[in-house]
């Protein structure tokens, strides 16, 4: 069964924002998720996640002064689960049309309310056979630095590879080519791949 994470609540050509069905059930940073626009399946890399108040004007307040544990706060205030929301942003890194995976932006953004799924290990493996998506990660200008996003994405993908080392070396070589004139950035990302 595919693991459904939430649904799209904001979509542009380059990314989409999804809200989780369950508070705190966020996909990890760098993980590969997918959604759909009719026949086209859109792949995204999670680059940012946030949990906040449902209403922008109402900030949560501290409630645990008299409680013994953090869980106890939620137990005594069950309404909290309905007043808070978890959201994540995914950078679109490719799409699939039929059997073919393209590692460039899809023709149209996702529909609002499209379901968002976590990708299976098989899907991750078939997506990560090419590294053309790396340039999309490297060229982002987001609050989270591209080195972090790239490092996290490759670590996540490496987790499911048969030969993790060979995968990371191949990815590293691709990065070395893309960053041939920027060794400092390359060094930072390579440092993040080892972990």
């Amino acid at each position: 069964m595919e693991e459904r994470l939430g649904e799209v609540i904001e979509a542009t050509t380059g990314e989409f924002v999804a809200q989780c069905y369950e508070l705190y059930r966020l996909p990890p940073l760098g993980s590969l998720v997918k959604t759909r626009d009719e026949a086209v399946e859109l792949y995204g890399i999670v680059y940012q996640a946030a949990t906040s108040s449902l209403e922008p004007g109402r900030r949560p307040i501290a409630r645990g002064e008299d409680e013994t544990s953090e869980e106890a706060i939620y137990q005594s205030n069950p309404q909290l689960l309905k007043l808070l929301k978890s959201e994540f942003n995914a950078l679109i890194v490719g799409h699939r049309l039929g059997d073919k995976i393209y590692q460039h932006l899809p023709p149209r953004p996702a529909h609002i309310h499209s379901f968002v799924y976590a990708c299976s290990d098989d899907e991750i493996r078939s997506f990560s056979q090419s590294f053309a998506f790396l340039i999309l990660l490297l060229n982002t200008h987001r609050p989270v630095p591209p080195e972090e996003i790239t490092g996290a994405a490759l670590r996540e993908m490496g987790r499911v590879q048969e030969d993790r080392h060979a995968f990371l070396v191949a990815a590293g070589k691709e990065l070395a080519v893309l960053l041939s004139d920027n060794f400092s950035q390359l060094k930072v990302i390579l440092g993040r791949l080892k972990a």
Partner: peptide, 10 residues
Amino acid sequence: FIAEVLAGTS
């Protein structure tokens, strides 16, 4: 790892 990545690329 670093050495292997850099060899032949950078």
